[in-house]
Amino acid sequence: MSVIVSVKNLSKQFNEIRAVDDLSFSIHEGDIYGFLGQNGAGKSTTIRMLLTLIKPTSGEINIFGKELQSNRNEILGKTGAIIERPDMYKYLSAFDNLAIFAKMSGVPVKRSFIMERLDMVGLAERHNSKVRTFSQGMKQRLGIAIALVHDPRLIILDEPTNGLDPQGIADMRNLILGLSRDMGKTVLVSSHLLSEIEVIANRMIIINKGKKITEGSVAELLNPSNTVVHLESTDNNNAWAVLQQTKWSADAVHNGAYIQVTMHKTELPQMVSALSTAGVGIISVKPRHSLEDYFLSLTNSGAHA
């Protein structure tokens, strides 16, 4: 699998603020690459640097194996993007908007071609309506049509689900998955919500304060050894005392209402049986596989660092 995007030691300084700090990562062909970080972590700045909207202070960006700045038009011709909100010319019709951006991308503008694209996102019937009259979801779909009109190899989506209703979020997920699975596109998608990245991305990076915290495959980062278990019992103090005698003592935290234990997922039955044997009445055991705590803890520790 070839490397589509390669970022090396990328930094961006805005006056006093270092928005992106020595960031390196790479995206392979066919990846859905999750870009995770809290608001203000430097996601947007990085994405804008990938799209030449912002000039890096230092570092190197290669896309499709070519240096970005010197091959700007060639690279951008094969890249589609939605940056935050999908904004377009509100005083123009859906058709006109798509035609304009298709033209700017160097795509031949035939009526049938544009209509086909509009049909793809379910806007064919409204092609003559001004965008001003569109709902957020319709704008989002038109934004996707615009991003895809020139059949790009790389698609960059900055917070694509922002402001969408649950149905819109679900549609967007399916669309992103389809782009990769059915069309073989490489997708970079950013979000401040792990839950979103977790369900669509195969690889991800977590950044905080412009710095890379971790990067890897989602599967790796969902490594079962990092399972966090929340334990609630009839007598938490008793349970705590029992746990102190086990190998999990070092990884346990007494939170009052519950006890949190970090362990390998496969060790869970072992712990439950140990507690039962000791006479602890177990009310609930909630293992959390998701990266949510991981993400939160990492970014929190980052915040304290």
Binding site: R48, L51, T52, L53, R72, N73, E74, L76, G77, T79, A81, I83, E84, R85, D87, M88, Y89, K90, F101, M104, S105, G106, I146
Partner: peptide
């Protein structure tokens, strides 16, 4: 203001 600037600047237009 409309937000289209960033979009047109990601098009292959110098």
């Amino acid at each position: 203001n409309m937000g289209t600037l960033r979009l047109i600047l990601t098009k292959p237009v110098s």
